[in-house]
Amino acid sequence: MIITKAKPTQDVLDMLGNVKKVLLTGCGECSTTCRTGGVEELDAMEKFLTENGYEVVGKCVPQLSCNKNLMKRELKAFKDSGYEAVVVMSCGDGTQTVAGLVDSPVYPANDTMFLGEIERLTLFSEACRMCGDCVLGKTGGVCPITKCAKSLVNGPCGGAKNGKCETNPDVECGWILIYDKLKKLGQLDKLYVANDDKGYKKNLYPMTINLKEDAANE
């Protein structure tokens, strides 16, 4: 799940500036779950923009804002609505999908925060930083790249106090979590295997994955 947070509404007004007619798009998946781009949030945004002198000429919440073909079909319906700008209430990816499909300016209503898990309906926590070289098999299924504020790969620093991270006394030290889990699994020996730092060559962005080409190369 891509976790998003709504920008301050004033920011949306600042971005829109002098245009009059606005199209609103959301996303039926992540932003709906995060309550930043579902039907209700689009309604609220419409009300807010109307109160501030804008005309919302269309609204849509596609199943996925990051699916280019799907989004293309959704946007067709608004071709003749006369919108001068689009406010996208999804993640940064969904915003760029829309931006690639329309000729008018596109403005994000959300900040994209992290890839996270849904702990409960209103609580999301970051678990994976998408490093491109998963080490979870060595660390008891607890990610040191994400759960350690320094992304240390060979064990903890000396900065934990009472098991909490030096950056935030509410956050558990990721390496103590790893230790506890490996101990439970009877895999403490894995701690002693030095991990080569992974380097950053694999993290060169922007990345593309082409399943067909990958299959052809195998």
């Binding site: 064990g155 903890p156 403490l188 701690l191 002693y192």
Partner: peptide, 11 residues
């Protein structure tokens, strides 16, 4: 746990 520090010292 002190074992974590000893482990890292070994590394």
């Amino acid at each position: 746990p002190v074992e974590l520090q000893l482990m890292k010292m070994k590394k």
